[in-house]
Amino acid sequence: MKKVGITGQNGFVGAHLYNTLGLEPEKFERIDFQKNYFENPDQLDEFVKQCDVIVHLAAMNRHPDAEVIYHQNVDLVKKMVASLERTNSKAHLLFSSSSQEERDNLYGKSKKEGRSLLANWAKEKGGKFTGMIIPNVFGPFGKPNYNSFIATFCHKLTHGENPTVDVDSEVSLIYVGELVQEIIDQIEAGETAELYKVPATTTIKVSAVLEKLKSYKKLYFQNGEIPALTSSFDYQLFNTFRSYFDIATHYPVKFTQNIDPRGAFVEVIRLGIGGQCSFSTTVPGITRGNHFHTRKIERFAVIKGKALIQLRKIDSDEVLEFYLDGTDPAYVDMPIWYTHNIKNIGDEELLTIFWINEPYNPEDADTYFVEV
């Protein structure tokens, strides 16, 4: 087991890495890091002493004054180097640099200088160092107007705004889940690499990304239809888009009932992709679920009985509750990284239809059990 600490563990990439390491507790022990440790040398030293591996992600990406970005980022690295030296650490230090290193700006300069300082520490003190040059990262829960243009587009499209393309350049992208796996692979390899260029997994024009997101808004956000997703990037972008909903107000979504003297007809889901559709009966008082997924798209549709559906983002204490009744059929889609359950709160049998975008595979279930 390796003890892993992450500076910036509450940031965009840091939170995804922290949560993913938690899926394998037999391999990784996560050492907690708090932002204020950089202002308290004793606390920083205590953190460093516990770690076999330190992933240094803490950095400033944007500020009106580029000089502030430069000095802040270099200063954080200097504080880390000082702590490594005070504690005589031999930890494996992984550093997230950027493809901006190749550009003539102060952010890129801060990253390049930080990577050099850490590489020198490793050479002089016998530590291990991996300097990762990372392309543009996107994924769920990124901060709009900060982490990526995709985060900005998604937030605007789901909050009544119309994003525009200022410069229609071709961009190299990596999904945050893919980046996290790259970091974990480097942790497990445990080798020094002063410059490791993380390969982009998608190259696409900004306008093409916006067109895809606009189609997701029309088909899914407004009409509840799962769009055609023909590539890994499509799935990644769609799950990213879904994470920007105001879940508490978006769900449950009422179905359209077509009623005539024979009864009612309700379309549960319209698909541009396949998957697995099933139903369950649940006796009163019983709860199903209490698990989450990291990639799957899933819909719960209550068509008979009364149900309580609960959702909780796994690094949050906030529980969202939705009450559904088969007399007024509705559905709730399960966001990735949200543990969820469904409970029969009525006096009769509960009938629920479940759709998920991929058939269940016990060898790659993408299902992690955590109580809501």
Rank of each mutant, 00 (worst) to 15 (best):
F12A: 02
Y18F: 14
R30D: 03
D32W: 05
Q34E: 15
F47V: 10
F47K: 10
V48P: 04
D52N: 13
V53W: 01
N61E: 12
H63G: 08
P64F: 13
I69S: 06
H71F: 10
V74Q: 05
L76H: 05
L76Y: 15
K79T: 02
V81W: 01
V81H: 00
H92C: 11
N105A: 04
N105E: 14
S110L: 05
K112D: 11
A119D: 03
G131A: 05
I134W: 06
P135V: 01
F138W: 04
G139K: 06
K143W: 03
P144K: 04
A151H: 10
K156A: 10
S172K: 15
S172C: 10
Y175G: 06
G177S: 13
V180C: 06
I183G: 12
T192W: 08
L195F: 07
P199E: 07
T201W: 06
T202K: 15
T202G: 00
I204M: 03
K212Q: 14
K212Y: 07
L213V: 00
K218N: 02
A228M: 09
T230V: 05
S231G: 01
S232A: 12
F233Y: 14
L237P: 01
F241I: 01
S243K: 03
R270E: 13
G275C: 07
V283Y: 10
V283M: 11
G285W: 12
R288M: 08
F292V: 08
H293I: 14
T294E: 06
K296L: 13
L308D: 09
I309K: 06
L311A: 01
S316H: 10
D317P: 02
G326F: 11
G326D: 12
H340F: 00
H340Y: 08
I342Y: 08
E349R: 09
L350P: 11
I353Y: 13
F354K: 04
W355Y: 15
N357M: 06
N361D: 15
N361H: 11
T367C: 14
V370H: 03
